[in-house]
Simulated assay, not measured.
Amino acid sequence: MIARPHDRPPHGPFELLPGEERPSRIDPALLDDWTGRFVGQLAAPSAERLGMGNEQILLDVATGSQARTRPAADGKGWTVVRRGPLDLWTAIEDALVQWRSHGSPHLSAFGMTITSDAQKVWLDLPHGPSWTLPI
């Protein structure tokens, strides 16, 4: 899910491990949309995205946290499995729900404020919804 123009952070081999399961509040395919992927990256800046459509896999290279989605067994909605100290999918869900509640605006609706000690990406206005980036 790299949105910035640089190489992926290195990671060794990993395996999909068991974790906590719950229904997803969003369609995982929202991450297939370029702006949806951008918003997801704001919420989980050190996560690498693997997979596509209903079957997304997120791996946080800094902590080893994982999230993966799949269609729900009953065919209604999606299931997410999470593992590790960061709840990657909840952060992404929250960000995408917020983006969609503002009408799923194009990238041109985003702005950025940079100070000597912080970087913040915001939606519509500097005091609107925002995500603080690592520096």
Score class of each variant (00 low, 15 high):
residue 1 M to C: 09
residue 6 H to T: 11
residue 7 D to R: 11
residue 8 R to I: 07
residue 8 R to H: 12
residue 9 P to G: 09
residue 11 H to D: 15
residue 11 H to Y: 14
residue 11 H to F: 15
residue 12 G to Q: 10
residue 12 G to D: 14
residue 12 G to N: 10
residue 13 P to S: 12
residue 14 F to R: 14
residue 14 F to N: 10
residue 15 E to Y: 03
residue 16 L to T: 10
residue 17 L to M: 10
residue 20 E to H: 14
residue 21 E to M: 14
residue 21 E to G: 15
residue 23 P to A: 12
residue 27 D to A: 04
residue 32 D to F: 00
residue 32 D to V: 00
residue 33 D to N: 02
residue 33 D to V: 00
residue 33 D to E: 06
residue 40 G to N: 03
residue 40 G to A: 08
residue 47 A to V: 03
residue 51 G to Y: 05
residue 53 G to M: 09
residue 53 G to A: 12
residue 55 E to D: 11
residue 56 Q to D: 05
residue 57 I to T: 08
residue 61 V to E: 06
residue 63 T to Q: 05
residue 64 G to F: 05
residue 65 S to G: 06
residue 66 Q to S: 07
residue 68 R to K: 08
residue 68 R to I: 02
residue 73 A to T: 14
residue 77 G to E: 08
residue 79 T to D: 06
residue 81 V to P: 01
residue 83 R to M: 07
residue 84 G to Y: 02
residue 84 G to A: 07
residue 84 G to P: 02
residue 86 L to G: 01
residue 87 D to K: 06
residue 89 W to G: 02
residue 90 T to L: 14
residue 91 A to M: 10
residue 94 D to C: 08
residue 95 A to V: 01
residue 96 L to S: 00
residue 96 L to Q: 00
residue 98 Q to L: 14
residue 99 W to H: 01
residue 104 S to A: 13
residue 108 S to W: 15
residue 109 A to P: 09
residue 111 G to I: 02
residue 111 G to F: 02
residue 112 M to I: 08
residue 114 I to Q: 13
residue 115 T to H: 13
residue 116 S to H: 12
residue 116 S to D: 13
residue 116 S to W: 12
residue 118 A to G: 11
residue 119 Q to T: 12
residue 119 Q to L: 08
residue 119 Q to W: 07
residue 119 Q to K: 10
residue 121 V to R: 07
residue 129 P to N: 08
residue 130 S to T: 07
residue 131 W to C: 04
residue 132 T to G: 11
residue 133 L to N: 05
